[in-house]
Simulated assay, not measured.
Amino acid sequence: MRRKNAFMLFLTAFIWGTAFVAQSVGMDYLGPFGFNGIRSLIGGVALLPCIYILGKINKNSNEKGDVKTLAAGGICCGLALFAASSMQQIGIQYTTAGKAGFITAFYIVLVPVFGIFLGKKTGWKIWLAVALALAGLYFLCITESFSVGRGDIYVFIGALLFTVHILVIDYFAPRTDGVKMSCIQFFVAGILSMFPMAAFETTTVEGIMRSWGPLLYAGVLSCGVAYTLQIIGQKNMNPTVASLILSLESCISVLAGWAILGEQLSVREGVGCILMFAAIVLAQIPEKQSKNRQTAAL
């Protein structure tokens, strides 16, 4: 189960990393709220047939959780997702992509820090993996002198909100149906995005038609598939380990730019990728049980 969950989270990171290409092209014709809103609604619609099929397959199984828990989880996840993605997208307009990637990746540190206040235990291997991941992300993302500006503050707020999103999923995922909760969160995030889109952006049918490819990729795969894999993969998974695996999105985005767009991968970025993968491997090594716990198990 641990390996299966880790693979799901890695696949999530892969889809998100490659989706940066689609998001970059789609933003040529749509504003940040318009793009996020439409792709979220597409993601929610894409999950409806999946829910129907899974319902037929598991017709005789007991329904996990109640409707109230499902609704609460979907709404809370949707609110957190809308707020986090909005802050990140706004911040990117005022800062560089490298700084935004590094600041957003602070959720790797913030998840275990927040987890301490929620009573979650984190071993020394996880903290060492966190340190390696941060070092890797620094080499991967920071290519210019670091300074704090308005955009950096927005992106940092987004990182805080992404941390909340991960912890909210960690709370609700074991208690309810993950696919249904994912569907609800996308409709919530998509509907909420429509209000600032109507107030601050000009969205045209022509712009949507020109962005249909990126919207479908970002909606069906990045939203409908990846976020659902995240919810399912995080079940009974240490949220710190989950955030480390998901942070591979940064490495994969660099590799996708090199493979698809012909962008060059520098030695510095290569070192960052190696450190990130080392952190993931370290985080997946199980802790040795103490003698007392082994004796008790016997």
Rank of each mutant, 00 (worst) to 15 (best):
I103C: 12
G115C: 07
L137I: 14
Q93T: 13
G65N: 03
F82W: 06
K59T: 07
L81E: 02
L118I: 10
L48F: 06
P112V: 04
I90P: 08
F106V: 11
T143Q: 15
A72K: 11
V113D: 00
L81H: 06
A83R: 05
A100V: 00
L81N: 03
T95Q: 03
T69N: 10
T104K: 03
Q93L: 13
G136C: 11
C141T: 09
T143P: 01
V45A: 10
Q89E: 10
L48N: 00
A80G: 07
F102M: 00
G115P: 04
A129P: 01
L132E: 03
Y138A: 15
I116C: 14
W124E: 12
K59S: 14
I42G: 03
A80K: 07
W127S: 01
K120E: 13
G91P: 00
P49I: 04
L47C: 04
E144P: 04
W127P: 06
A135T: 14
G136Q: 13
G55D: 13
L54C: 01
S145Q: 14
K125Y: 07
T96L: 09
L118E: 11
W124C: 12
K99L: 11
V113T: 09
D66V: 02
G44Q: 04
A97N: 14
A129Q: 01
S86V: 07
I42V: 01
P49S: 02
F139V: 06
G136T: 09
S85W: 10
T104G: 03
G91E: 01
F146K: 04
G123D: 12
C76M: 14
G65T: 00
Y107W: 01
L137A: 09
A72E: 07
V155M: 10
S61V: 08
L79W: 12
V130T: 13
C77M: 15
L41N: 07
I103V: 15
D152T: 08
E63D: 14
G151D: 02
G151S: 03
Y52I: 03
F106G: 05
I103Q: 11
A80P: 08
G74F: 01
G73H: 13
S85G: 04
G91Y: 09
D66T: 02
G73P: 11
K68R: 15
N58K: 01
I142M: 15
L79C: 10
F146G: 05
A135Q: 07
P112A: 05
Y154V: 03
I75Q: 08
D66N: 12
I153T: 10
S145K: 15
G44I: 06
W127A: 03
G55K: 12
E144F: 06
I92E: 11
F114P: 10
I92H: 08
Y52H: 05
A135L: 15
I53A: 08
K125C: 12
G151E: 06
L41T: 02
C141K: 04
I116R: 15
K68M: 14
D66Q: 07
W127G: 05
V113K: 00
I126Q: 13
G101L: 06
L140H: 01
I153W: 00
K68Y: 12
C76V: 13
I103N: 13
G55N: 14
A131K: 09
V148C: 08
I153V: 14
I103G: 13
F139D: 07
I51M: 14
A71M: 15
V109P: 05
D152S: 07
I126D: 09
A83T: 09
I57T: 00
F106K: 04
C76Q: 08
